[in-house]
Structures are given as structure tokens and as C-alpha cells.
Amino acid sequence: MSAPTLGKDLVGLEGLSREQIELLLDTAEPFKEVSERQIKKVPALRGKTVVNLFFEASTRTRISFEFAEKRLSADTVSVAASGSSVSKGETLVDTARNLEAMRIDMVVIRHGASGAAKFLGDRIASNVINAGDGKHEHPTQGLLDILTLRDKFKKIEGLKVAICGDVLHSRVARSNIWGLTKLGAKVAVCGPPTLVPREITALGVEVLPHIEDAIAWADALNILRLQLERMEKGYIPSLREYNRVFGVTVDRLEKAPKDLLIMHPGPMNRGVEIDSAVADGPHSVILPQVTNGVAVRMAVLYLLAGGKPDGSAARAEES
């Protein structure tokens, strides 16, 4: 049997096999160490050109990708939607063609429309990496969440993970569900019924109606950010009530039968979906998630560029 490889693009975890996801996680392992060095650089992507195309505001994901690219020695350009021709009404397909004409190797795209990454990938020869498309997927976030879980629990098979909050609008939730279920984890979602799609059980996840149920059931909680505009659209009455009914609080966690690992993709609304004492508490891995984000993105870039998954890239020193 030949070793698994990735395709041209990384659009989501839905389309990946268990083996491909494990390949990505295993490839990320040795890259973690690169970021701990004095000189945080390996030559794996030397001479490659990467464009970070961010049509939606993002700090964490964009910087994480930029560091991953730079630590692999790629030449990078980051484009924010405002201040580019995009804000002058250029279509995505024209933007793509122009990038292509500049002979770039890879595009990292963040876009507000679901399907935008696939749209781009179908139209250009360069590798396309989805850094979040609408409410569809955010595969590198899913991978870094799973890598963080694997760091703590050593294996994913059989692990109980509850994804809490606004599942309806969350690309992070979808990527986590696909990735975790493919690796054999048990996944539940928990949130107000207005923010949990009715059909979600078809993905093999359980719906827990109360946050107390999720806390009692899970080994780890992945707590989603509540977008503040959900109130205006009538999905929830107020942030205060959301915290009362669905917030992950110290009181609630103290009643749990065991200590739960606490994750959050950020940025957090402290005092809404998560209390500060929980976010800063002993079981929070919110910052290790961020650290793992760089390693996972290095792995994605490296593998899509055709790199060999044998750890040699991470061992190489910058010459």
C-alpha cells in the first residue's frame, strides 16, 4: 500500500480520509520543534511563493499562516481585502487569474462565502489552502484542535468531545466534527436550538440540550465564539442570558465528574461563552492550541508542496 498523500488543495476535512488526517498530524509533530529553536527556520519551501488572501478580517489565523510560511522559508505576500482591487469590485475569479499570472505556488484564502476556497481551487493550478470559508470549514483549525487533543490524551479514538455554542454558523464546528469522527472520537454538540442545525445528527454527532449535560459527558470541551450579531438577528435574547444558560463557568465545571480539557478557537468573549477563570484555568489549552496552529499549518504547506512526510524537513537546518 502506498503512503497517503494530499490532493492539490486543502478545502476541508470532509474530503480527507483518516489516513490523510493522521499524515497531517504526524507531519506536524516534528515541525513543533522548529518554533522552539533559536533560528526558527527550515529551508523546505525555499523559492516557493505563497499569497495569503484574506477577504475577511483575521489576526490569529493570518499571522499563524505567515509564521508557518516564513519558518519554511517561503516568499510570502499577504493581501487584505480592503486596500486591494477586491474592494474596487473585482470578482474572485479575476483576482485568482491575476495571481496565477504572477506565477505563484500557493494561495491561502479566508473568505466570507462558503465554497470560496473550492471555487478558487477549481480555477487555478496553484495549491489552495482554506483558511476559513463562510460557515463551511476551517480545516487547519480543526487539525490544530485535534493535534492539541492528541497531545493531551495520546489518542483520539473513543475520546468524548463536546462542541459548544453557535454550531449553525461555525466553520470550526464542521471541521472538528469531520476530523474527530473520522479518527473515531465521539462528538456531541451543545447550544441553543436556534444555533444548532436540526440535521447535524446526520453527521454522526449527538445533540446535548444543556451545557450541564455536555460537561457531565465530555472529556474535552471546544467552546465556540458567540458572534455578537446573533442577538440582533433574533437567535438569542441577550449575552447575559446566554452566559446564564450556556456559559462554561467554574461553578458548572466543579460539578463535573472529572477535569475537562478546555479549548476555544478564539477570539474569546470572556464572560459570555466562557468565564475568565475557566479560560485562564489549569485545564485550559487555549494557548497551546495557538502554538500548534503554526506546526499544523507548516505541515499542510509542506505536504501540499510535495514534501516527504519523513521528518527530514524539520531536521534540516537553515544553511
Binding site: 470532509e14 462558503s114 465554497g115 470559508d133 463562510g134 460557515k135 463551511h136 470549514e137 466553520r171 464542521r174 442545525p197 440535521e199 447535524i200 446526520a202 453527521l203
Partner: peptide
Amino acid sequence: EGIVSMRLGLK
């Protein structure tokens, strides 16, 4: 609105 819209992340 159904299973496909949920998977594709489309409203």
C-alpha cells in the same frame, strides 16, 4: 434548508 445546506455551510 436541509442536510446539504448544513454540510456546505450555506444558509
